[in-house]
Amino acid sequence: MSDIKEISPENLAAFGIIGGLLGIYLSPLFPPYTSIFGALGAICAVIWGAEAVRRVAKYGLGTGVPSIGQIAMGMGIIAAMFGLAIMKSVTKDPRAIYAGPVLALVTASIIGFVIGWFAQNVIKMKIPVMVRCMTEIAASGALIIIGYSAAVAGNYDFMGSLILKVFDNGVILAVFWVGAMAMLHPFNACLGPDEKQKRLLYLAASTGAITMAVMGIAAIMTLGPMGVVTLVIGVILWLIFYKKFWDEVYKDAASVVGTGLIPKTEA
C-alpha cells in the first residue's frame, strides 16, 4: 500500500473546502442559471467527506460504515441551519448573508470536534484519527447539505428561499439521505484489503454526480427548466466518473477473465 502515492488529507480538505464554498457562493450569482454551481461545490465536499470516512472507518467502527455517514449528515444539518440562520439575529445588514456558509462550516467543525473528542476520550473508541476525521466529516456534511440545497433553491438564503423551496416540500429529506449515501457509499463499497484511494475518489465523484442528478429532478419542481440542466449535467458527470471508477476496478483486479457458464454435468 505504501508504495502507492496518495493525495494527502490536507490537499483533499483544501479541495473540499475551497471547491465547496466557491460553488455555494457562485450559486446565487445569476439566478437561476448558476444554481448548478451549488451541486458542483457539493461534489467537491462529497469527495473530501468520502476520503475522511475512509480514513476513520479503516479502523473498524463496530457499527458499519453507514453510521458515520448518518452522523455526518445529522451534525451537518444542525450546523447548516444554524450557520445560515444566525447572522440575521446579529445584524440587520443584508450583506450578512454572505457569512452563512462559512459560519456553517465553522459550527459543523466545532460540533464534529466535540463529538469526536467525546468518542475518543469518554466512550474510548481508541481510534487515533477520530477527532480530526469527525471534524472533517461534520464540516463536509454541512457543505454537502448547503451545496445541494442551493442547487435546488437557487441560493442559500435560509429564510428567503431554503425554507420555502427545500424544507416545506420535503426535498431536504432527499438532500439528507442521498447526500449521506453519496458520502458513505464509496468506502462502504470499496473497503477491504486491496482498497485504493484513487478508486474510492472516482466512486465518490460518481456518487456525488448521481446525487446532483437527483437534485436536478427536485430542481425541476422549484426552478423549472434549469433543473433539467442540473439533471443532464449530473448524469453526464456520473457517466464519466463511473467509467473512470470502472477502469480503476479493472486495473486493480488481478485479472479479468470470462469463466463461461457453469458446466451442466460434473466432470
Partner: peptide
C-alpha cells in the same frame, strides 16, 4: 418542517453515539 428536520439531525447524532 424546520423543527422536524432539526429533530432528525439530533436523532441521528444521538443514535450513532451510543452505537459506538
Amino acid at each position: 418542517a424546520v423543527a422536524g428536520v432539526f429533530t432528525m439531525g439530533v436523532f441521528y447524532v444521538n443514535s450513532v453515539i451510543p452505537s459506538y
